[in-house]
């Protein structure tokens, strides 16, 4: 449920770093807590994201949540397919449900995020 090759933050985002580009999405735990996603509001390519700050919103029928960026950098690509098919976030949170690709300012920021095991322990503690 929490792939080993990803990093996680306390806001339930995951990060997959390749070179200096990070793919960002929300964890399986987060999508399950939200329920069926009906709307994802994302920024545009070229926008800046800042670690710890909101980059968008995600809504299920019953609730709305801020999407908090786990790192800082410039957005190079946005998953526009989520506009028409927001439910992809539920169906494939680590694959087609990705949200942003970000050229990170400092790859070391990613190292500071939680490992899969640490994240799992974090969730167990929260629940």
């Amino acid at each position: 449920m929490y792939p080993k090759d990803l990093k996680y933050d306390k806001e339930h985002e995951w990060v997959r770093l390749a070179g200096d580009v990070a793919v960002i999405g929300i964890s399986d735990f987060a999508q399950d807590q939200l329920g069926e996603v009906v709307y994802v509001d994302l920024p545009s390519a070229g926008d800046e994201v800042i670690a710890g700050e909101s980059f968008g919103e995600i809504e299920s029928v019953k609730s709305v949540s801020e999407l908090i960026s786990p790192l800082s950098g410039e957005i190079v690509e946005v998953n526009d397919a989520l506009g028409d098919a927001p439910e992809t976030v539920n169906e494939d949170p680590y694959g087609d449900g990705w949200m942003l690709k970000v050229k990170v300012n400092d790859p070391a920021e990613v190292d500071e995020l939680m490992s899969s095991d640490e994240y799992e322990a974090f969730i167990a503690e929260e629940a």
């Binding site: 329920g35 069926e36 009906v38 299920s60 029928v61 019953k62």
Partner: peptide, 9 residues
Amino acid sequence: PVQYAGVIE
């Protein structure tokens, strides 16, 4: 109960 399988379903 607010939901079982999911609100939309």
